[in-house]
């Protein structure tokens, strides 16, 4: 038995134990299927998982393991078929589209692999976009803190196409952090970056959990990226099959390799 299976479900999902640890995101019995009959794919098979607050969690797994589906459902971008997703005390599955949209605006941040920014407006406007869509003022001090942390002071007036790939991702991170959401989701946030720039962005994300207490959940297939996380969740065939605490490139690679067997 691989070593990491020993830590599987170190936390139990019963309601009595839930309050003991402070979770930012939790699911119960989450299911999602695509297609019908012969093309039927069970993307999520009754997933029960909880993500601790102020931690950086990476979700990994081979193609088709359901990691992206899980993240999209958790982020309220896609609808699950059954179960519960609790963020900020609310079950996402019981919300209508407008409520879900407000949820995304206020409680959830995003960093996508590419096409993160609206091309017609400059960096600062992109960072402020979720707040301005909600018609809300931003907190100047917090804005300064985030900008300073991400080193974007000189780039605020640039349009996205005038920024490098790394700078674009940093703007996206700044945008995600600015609303102080319950959770920030990253969908391969460094997938399009070279390794040095990628490392820079990942360090920034990790320090935001350490220094700002931000919860981050990231989907990646890159063991190097995953090694920046506090915890790695492993998925296969729509189920969580393991976790790795304090992951390193080596442990993650080994775990992935054995998953593929």
């Amino acid at each position: 038995m691989p070593f990491w299976l020993g830590t599987l479900y170190s936390f139990s999902m019963t309601s009595e134990t839930l309050p003991k640890i402070d979770y930012a995101v939790a699911t119960r019995g989450l299911t999602k299927t695509y297609g019908h009959d012969s093309t039927r794919v069970e993307a999520l098979r009754s997933v029960d998982v909880a993500f601790a607050r102020s931690k950086f969690t990476a979700i990994m797994g081979p193609s088709g393991s359901g990691k992206s589906t899980l993240m999209h459902c958790l982020a309220g971008l896609d609808s699950a078929d059954g179960g519960e997703i609790i963020i900020g005390g609310k079950n996402l599955l019981s919300l209508n589209d407008d409520q879900l949209t407000e949820m995304r605006r206020e409680q959830i941040g995003f960093v996508f692999q590419s096409f993160n920014l609206v091309p017609t407006i400059n960096a600062q406007e992109n960072i402020l976009l979720p707040l301005s869509l909600a018609g809300k003022k931003h907190d100047e001090a917090w804005f300064d803190t985030v900008i300073k942390a991400l080193g974007l002071r000189d780039r605020l007036n640039h349009k996205p196409h005038e920024l490098s790939g790394g700078q674009q991702q940093r703007v996206a991170v700044a945008r995600a952090l600015l609303t102080r959401p319950e959770v920030v989701f990253g969908d391969e946030p460094t997938g399009n970056l070279d390794s040095r720039t990628g490392a820079e962005v990942l360090s920034l994300m990790r320090s935001s959990t350490r220094e700002m207490g931000q919860t981050i959940i990231m989907v990646t297939h890159d063991p190097v990226a995953a090694s920046y996380a506090d915890t790695v969740l492993l998925m296969k065939d729509g189920s969580i099959v393991g976790t790795i605490e304090e992951p390193t490139v080596a442990t993650v690679s080994e775990a992935l390799a054995s998953l593929a067997e």
Binding site: D97, D98, T101, L129, R175
Partner: peptide, 13 residues
């Protein structure tokens, strides 16, 4: 894509 990004970031239908 851009419209979907806006929707993800909190633009209502």
């Amino acid at each position: 894509r851009e419209n979907s990004l806006l929707r993800a970031l909190g633009l209502k239908k």
